[in-house]
């Protein structure tokens, strides 16, 4: 299974089309094909990890609660001295980072361990607020912010990617199907759209991070 294939757990869970309330602007629900790698700085490895990430085209590692976009990858803070690195599909990220970091950091491939949902649209905040208790108001949260918090009762990383607003919701793959159902149920009273304008069996919604759309 390459990184560009959709998660098999999600087969049939998100079908292209418009669902829920028929009136008003729907939120757009989809998944994002990307590579994810967890990096954890080992003792005294912080500076070497930062140098390796920067040399690989990454950003300055962001402080707690924030994400940073680099030239070739994004970094999301998830825990003290630990980040999720996100790049376009088939970037070979884990191997490159493991080689670059050496003993400075633990580098764990998470591409198939996590599933990234996208939730976009004017009412995305209202949908997410049904499931999590983080203050998503623009005065408290905004583009580039990250929260590690339970979504309903499932551990998730919530990353606001755009001011539209748009969110990435990163959960363990084994929970992907349950989260897809949860997001769909939360979005139904507002109405939601799965897939882009073309309805060609493409279960992706939203833009891709430097990668091709999943077909």
């Amino acid at each position: 299974m390459s990184a560009t294939e959709p998660h098999p757990w999600l087969a049939g869970a998100l079908v292209p089309g418009r669902f829920g309330a028929a009136a008003g602007e729907p939120v757009r629900l989809g998944t994002r094909a990307c590579e994810l790698v967890q990096v954890l700085a080992r003792r005294d490895g912080d500076a070497a990890l930062q140098a390796a990430i920067r040399a690989a085209g990454g950003p300055d590692l962001p402080p707690p609660g924030h994400a940073a976009q680099g030239e070739r990858m994004a970094a999301l803070w998830t825990q003290p001295r630990g980040w999720l690195i996100q790049a376009g599909p088939d970037a070979g990220l884990a191997r490159r980072l493991a080689d670059a970091c050496g003993p400075a950091a633990a580098v764990v491939e998470q591409t198939h361990g996590r599933c990234v949902f996208t939730l976009e649209g004017a009412h995305a905040r209202a949908v997410l607020a049904r499931l999590c208790r983080v203050d998503l108001h623009p005065r408290a949260f905004g583009p580039g912010r990250v929260a590690v918090t339970p979504l309903s009762e499932i551990a998730a990383v919530i990353h606001q990617t755009g001011a539209a607003p748009g969110f990435d919701i990163i959960v363990a793959s084994s929970y992907a199907r349950a989260v897809a159902g949860m997001l769909a149920a939360a979005a139904a009273p507002i109405g939601y759209q799965v897939g882009g304008d073309q309805m060609g069996g493409d279960q992706m919604g939203g833009d891709q991070m430097g990668g091709d759309r999943v077909d």
Binding site: P64, G65, V134, D135, A147, T149, P150
Partner: peptide, 9 residues
């Protein structure tokens, strides 16, 4: 985390 979070967490 430098954020206010609910007691449940």
């Amino acid at each position: 985390c430098a954020m206010d979070r609910p007691e449940l967490e």
